[in-house]
């Protein structure tokens, strides 16, 4: 046992969510073997469903990984997701083309992200406070734009079928939206590892004062990070619009920010900055949806399911903190 703990101390942070994932799948499969032999847990159908459900959380987690690695936090992304999805629906209702509406939604997200960046740099607000304020701001704006109603729209096919299951003869049995998320994830992972910008993100999160003394442009980097977060919140809004069958709902994304933060933290991100990886965050998002899916499969009641997810987050983060401290 002691040796196991020692090994855990030095292990790769991605190992933890991966291990969690394997455990959940294993437990659900074993349960299924005895209780539901005719419907095993591992199936193409369930895998597609889990991927689709993970996609929205994973999208936000891409941006949140950058924000948290830079030592920040963004609580407003749930509201921003809703705002972007109603902007998309409203634009489509107003007769704009799919491309125009999409660009408008993404621009809304980036603009809101820049606002967050300005508030935490030039405005000198703590990220928690700044985005707590804008969380209400964007929620109100979403309700204003939509007049507090769900907005249905006639979206072009390419924009409304991002999360639909692919035709069976497709090369890859994955929805287009999921593929896009994976592509974006690869781009972000590459950016973090290979570019000056990525290096600066970790430097600022690790020791902002040192980074400043070394001449790292703190403000520009932070603003860019929050702008990217805004972009991914908007992208998540577009996926949510797909999820709701081409509807924009002003009350979408309540609590979304917490799921996303949990995914990043499960994936090894540290709220005190300097740590976090795209691969880890993706696994964290996958772990959370798989856990929920397994609970549904095993017919765990909703209240119990919530408690289970909460407990797992606590245990995972406590283990991670311990691993850090032990060094």
């Amino acid at each position: 046992m002691k040796r196991l703990l020692e090994a855990w101390r030095g292990s790769n942070p991605v190992l933890a969510p991966l291990l969690g994932l394997v455990l959940v799948v294993l437990a659900a499969t074993l349960w299924g073997l005895s209780e539901k032999p005719d419907s095993p847990f591992l199936s193409g159908y369930r895998a597609a469903l889990v991927l689709k459900q993970s996609a929205i959380v994973a999208t936000g987690a891409l941006g949140m990984t950058l924000v948290i690695a830079a030592g920040g936090i963004d609580l407003a992304i749930g509201s921003l997701l809703a705002l972007c999805s109603v902007v998309l629906a409203k634009a489509l209702q107003g007769g704009h083309s799919g491309t125009e509406a999409l660009l408008l939604a993404l621009a809304t997200g980036v603009g809101a992200g820049v606002v967050h960046g300005l508030l935490v740099t030039h405005g000198r607000l703590a990220p928690f406070i700044a985005t707590l304020g804008t969380m209400l701001l964007w929620r109100g704006a979403a309700e204003e734009v939509s007049a507090q109603k769900k907005l249905s729209s006639d979206a072009p096919d390419w924009l409304a079928s991002l999360l639909d299951p692919p035709a069976t003869d497709d090369l890859l049995p994955v929805a287009t939206g999921v593929l896009l998320v994976l592509l974006a994830a690869a781009a972000m992972a590459w950016m973090l590892a290979r570019t000056v910008f990525g290096r600066r993100i970790y430097a600022i999160g690790s020791n902002e004062a040192a980074a400043r003394l070394c001449g790292v442009p703190i403000y520009t980097t932070k603003i860019a990070v929050y702008a990217l977060m805004g972009f991914f919140a908007a992208a998540a809004g577009v996926l949510e619009f797909n999820n709701l069958n081409a509807q924009g709902n002003p009350s979408s994304g309540a609590g979304y920010e917490l799921d996303v933060i949990a995914a990043v933290v499960l994936g090894g991100g540290s709220l005190s900055g300097g740590k976090g990886s795209i691969a880890g965050s993706l696994l964290g998002a996958l772990l959370m949806t798989t856990l929920r899916s397994a609970c549904i499969y095993a017919e765990v009641a909703d209240p119990l399911q919530k408690m289970l997810v909460g407990a797992i987050i606590l245990v995972a983060v406590a283990l991670d903190r311990w691993r850090e401290r032990a060094r």
């Binding site: 570019t195 000056v196 290096r199 970790y202 040192a210 300097g274 740590k275």
Partner: peptide, 27 residues
């Protein structure tokens, strides 16, 4: 000490003076 504890020794040494090719690090 003004060290970024999470960055590697190399990354700390070149911090703020990365001499990249465009946006790309030359590791």
């Amino acid at each position: 000490l003004s060290i970024a504890p999470h960055l590697s020794v190399v990354e700390n040494i070149v911090l703020g003076d990365e001499r990249a090719r465009g946006p790309l690090l030359r590791r």
